[in-house]
């Protein structure tokens, strides 16, 4: 008989987008798990890889088009400078909350014991090399490798 009591032991968080709000949601969840003593691993795939890309990670944006929560007409959101403005406003709010920038956040995650994995297929698709990504990268994995790492009672998986 298993005595598993439903406790969360490991969070496997897949990040597939590089809009600032998605990236922060994933980072806060991964970091929050570690703060509770829960193991935590991140798999960066498709556009999520941009959050690890040395030349792109500090320049991520909030999406103003196709984002109904911005409460602005889509036509307006597409005007030049709108995305930069929304991004600037969000970064200002995050500063107030003592939220680190993307690069520093990745450093904090790694120091906290979060495993940082890049998706093999997405790497090939975007023609990225390991050296293009932040030094905190723990390795490049296939989906199968990632599932292997997720095995065991109490593992939860999130797709963002």
């Amino acid at each position: 008989m298993s005595e598993y009591n439903g406790e969360i032991k490991k969070m496997m968080i897949i990040l597939s987008k590089a809009t600032l709000d998605s990236v922060y949601a994933a980072f806060v969840l991964a970091n929050g798990a570690r703060m509770e003593g829960i193991e935590s691993e991140m798999f960066f795939t498709f556009f999520g890889l941009e959050a690890l890309h040395k030349e792109k990670m500090e320049d991520l944006h909030v999406a103003t088009v196709g984002n109904p929560a911005m409460h602005m007409p889509t036509m307006l959101g597409g005007l030049p400078g709108m995305e930069a403005l929304a991004t600037h406003m969000m970064k200002k709010e995050m500063d107030k909350l003592d939220l680190p920038g993307v690069k520093e956040f990745v450093e904090i995650l790694s120091a906290s014991g979060v495993k940082i994995w890049a998706c093999r297929l997405a790497m090939d698709m975007f023609h990225y090399k390991k050296e293009d990504l932040a030094p905190e990268l723990d390795g490049v994995l296939t989906v199968g490798d990632f599932y292997q790492r997720a095995q065991g009672l109490g593992t939860h998986m999130l797709f963002i």
């Binding site: 970091n31 003592d98 680190p100 904090i108 120091a111 906290s112």
Partner: peptide, 20 residues
């Protein structure tokens, strides 16, 4: 001062790795 992992890590007393 409200405590966050980031502040503790930047305190000079302990880094995040050692804190964990």
């Amino acid at each position: 001062v409200p405590l966050t992992i980031r502040r503790v890590g930047a305190s000079g007393v302990v880094d995040i790795k050692e804190f964990y």
